[in-house]
Every structure is written in structure tokens, then in C-alpha cells.
Design a protein around this nucleic acid. Structure first.
Ligand SMILES: [Mn+2]
Ligand SMILES: [Mn+2]
Ligand SMILES: [Mn+2]
Ligand SMILES: [Mn+2]
Lengths: 217, 217
DNA sequence: GTAAAAATTTAGATTAGTCTAAAAAAATAT
DNA sequence: ATATTTTTTTAGACTAATCTAAATTTTTAC
């Protein structure tokens, strides 16, 4: 049984480690959690004692398989709640993250199963991020940001990075949402900006924006 | 801004004081909160400092008007969430309390307004308890338990006491739900047990049960 | 291959919420 | 009107989560 704070640390470790693929250093975790390195060291000891991470002193932490599935449960709850807020309560997709940060810690297996059912077993959240199943399995979709692609590419938006609320507002304005058709019309070598065809209108976007729009493959 | 624990204490004080009509003693609060009197004294100091209660040493606490409206906001959230769980997620009415105890502490004015709208602005929760409005006003319905009434009374169930999950299961089985028609057919002086007509079938109930079924007036 | 710099851990404090044991105040019983 | 009992408060201690400052370890730079 993890405390709310421990769940937040574990989730951050899971994300920073790319789902358990690399170790996470004390300072990056401190930065991500908005705490000090000393606090991280303390918490790392607690999480190690609970066997959700392993810690090699001075060399960072790794999530264990137990930790991975506990992290995925929190992420499952987060994404199901975000889906609920957008689809049922009419929240905009840039308004859901803060609330989901709270709701993800509500402890009731029955609640999450019922919520999942109520939402029709969604596969992805409003930002296109995959929702782990009730066994803690996450289907990782091979995604690539469009700044990596060239003129002529066409496909459908799979997901957008959901880190920043202002970015999400902008993406919504230009209709860059999961499921929307997108085609790369031009690409400026100098600054990486792009001209794209999106939902049947042409617009220019900066490289910064193009790094946040993901397509399949 | 109150912490989760402070909200729980304040809500308990509000309920124990019958909505602010009498003072609450340290020991009853300790009993209700499953803590020790010493812990209550500490918390009472914090809540006094935040001006949601007033405390006269050795003579108990009273909720201030600020405290009353903060308590009502927590109760509003609790009852809206209970309504959501029953009406939208298909929970039984005896399964919602624990989860609502957690959900009532989610902090988002927008969430509660949207939830209220989504539920169609319900006036009462699944147990018939009134839901405070978004201004913190509670419409107190004049209710009376049927053990106080006599043979021949007929009316509709307004609410049931929601304290015990097993009681709720039993009430559900005999169809004693808010809105159901009820008539008192007989009453035994010896033990206070009753024969009632409920949803068109006759049953016998003990005095203990009759004290938990409320009608208007 | 040392010395300086950077990262990490430890030491010692602080705050919220809790406890037990002891002291103080109020209620009650003779 | 005292003495006893009950209730409440205070004193001192504990855990979780945090901090600052100091010590330690690793990394980097010459
Ligand atoms: Mn998301
Ligand atoms: Mn309840
Ligand atoms: Mn609560
Ligand atoms: Mn209720």
C-alpha cells in the first residue's frame, strides 16, 4: 500500500525512466517532483523498502516489475478520469490534468472498473495516450513526432504531448487532435518550421509545435 | 484552506452538532473520529485558529458560520458523488459511502459544478439526504422516523438513515427506498415492532428498523 | 592522476497528525 | 462542602514528508 506521495514519486520515476527502460537520477527526480535532492533520497529509501524500485547508491533508481504495475495502475486511473472529465462532464482537454492528478489517488478497484465500463472501455485518453488495462498491461503504440518526418507524409494524428495547458489550447485551436488527418506540405530547413494540411486547411507551425504532434509509426 | 483531516473533523463536528445547533464535546468527537481525546484537543486548536469553530476550554466546540458553510461544501460533494456512483455507475446504495468519503476531498469548484449539471441538479442523494446548493445553503426537510407515528399513517418514504451498510442492504431488500409508499398497519406496544404496507406488500419490522425510515413532517 | 566541480547522501530540524501518560479542571456523590 | 470520578488539556514522543547545511562520493578538467 503506497501513500499518495509515494504514488506520485513512483509515477514520476516510471515516466522519467521511459516505462522502466533506464535509471533515474536523484536530481532529475527532484526537479520533476519540485523537491530537493535530500527529500528524494529519503523517499527513494521508502520506495526501495516497499520493493517498487531498486536503488544503487549514487547511481540512480530503477522500477521493479512490482513498481511498474503499481505505476501503471495510477496511470490507468489518471487517464480514465481524464476521459471521464472530457467525454462526460464536458471539460476541455487542457483543463483535466490537475483534477486527474487528484482523482488518480482514489482507492477503489470497483470504482475504476465501473468507470471503465461507463466510458465504454476506452483505449486512449483525450490526448491520445494509451490507457493501461485492468491487469496493468500497457499497449505501447509506436509513435513519432512529425518534426521527424518529411514533405509528403500523410496520416492521422495519434496523440499530442499533454505537458502544457497553453500548448493544448493552441493545438485545439488548430484542430490538431487525435484522429485528425494531417499532411506535411513544406518544411523549412533553417528553423524546422512546417506547413501542414490539417483537417483540410493549411497552416504554418513552428518546430516546437511539430515536436508535440505524434503520428503512428 | 483545510487539509483532508481538518475537513473530516469539521464535517464530524457539523453532524454531531446537528448542523450547528449545539456544542460538541471532546470525547464524542474522539469517538466519532476514532481517535483519542488528546488528538482531538490538538485538532480543535488548529480548527479554531482557522476560525471554522470556536472553542471554550473544557466546554466543547461550536461551528462558526464560516465553518458551517465549509462543512456544507464537503457534504455537498459527498452527496453529489454518492448520487453519481448510484445513478451513473450502478453502485448499490450501501456501497457508495466509503468511496464518497474519499471523493468529497477532491478540490475543484469546476468539477463539482459540472458534476451537478451532469446529474441534473439532484435535490437529494440516494439515501434521501438533501444536497446543499453551490452557495452552501441546505434545505432542511422536516422529517420524522416512522417509529414516532401511529397506525393508519400513510405517506411516502423521504429518506433512510445511511449509517450502516447492512441496514441499507436490508432496507433495499424490503424496498424501503425514498419515494416508496408506506402505510402503518399495526404497532406492538410491547417492543415497538410494526406491521407496514410497503410498495404493496405487508411486512413486519422491528423498532430498530422503524427508527431508520423517515417520512416528511 | 590529482584537484576542482557536481551530484548525492547524511545529519539535524520542522510541521501535521497521532499516541500515552500525567496534570488540571469540572462534574458527581456522599 | 469535600472527596472521588470523569472529562479535558498538556507534556513529551513518534512517523511521514519536507527542508538547509554539511559530509561524502563520483565526475570532469587539467
Ligand atoms: Mn492525458
Ligand atoms: Mn455517505
Ligand atoms: Mn472524508
Ligand atoms: Mn448519503
Amino acid at each position: 500500500m503506497l501513500s499518495l506521495t509515494e504514488e506520485n514519486y513512483l509515477k514520476a520515476i516510471y515516466h522519467l525512466s521511459d516505462g522502466g527502460n533506464r535509471s533515474v537520477l536523484t536530481n532529475e527526480l527532484a526537479e520533476a517532483m519540485n523537491t530537493k535532492a535530500a527529500s528524494v533520497t529519503d523517499m527513494v529509501k521508502k520506495l526501495s523498502a516497499k520493493a517498487v524500485i531498486s536503488h544503487e547508491k549514487y547511481y540512480g533508481v530503477n522500477v521493479t516489475s512490482k513498481g511498474k504495475s503499481e505505476a501503471l495502475m495510477v496511470i490507468r486511473k489518471h487517464r480514465l478520469w481524464e476521459t471521464f472529465l472530457v467525454q462526460k462532464l464536458g471539460f476541455a482537454w487542457d483543463e483535466v490534468h490537475e483534477v486527474a492528478e487528484q482523482l488518480e489517488h482514489i482507492n477503489s478497484a470497483r470504482l475504476i472498473e465501473k468507470l471503465d465500463e461507463f466510458l465504454g472501455y476506452p483505449k486512449v485518453d483525450p490526448h491520445g495516450d494509451p490507457i493501461p488495462d485492468n491487469k496493468g498491461k500497457l499497449k505501447i503504440l509506436p509513435q513519432i513526432a512529425i518534426d521527424q518526418l518529411n514533405i509528403g507524409y500523410q496520416g492521422k494524428i495519434a496523440a499530442v504531448k499533454d505537458s502544457d495547458s497553453n500548448l493544448l489550447k493552441y493545438l485545439d485551436k488548430i484542430e490538431a487532435r487525435p484522429g485528425t488527418k494531417i499532411k506535411i506540405l513544406g518544411k523549412e530547413d533553417y528553423d524546422g518550421s512546417m506547413e501542414i494540411l490539417i483537417a483540410d486547411h493549411r497552416i504554418f507551425i513552428s518546430k516546437e509545435v511539430s515536436q508535440n504532434i505524434l503520428v503512428i509509426e
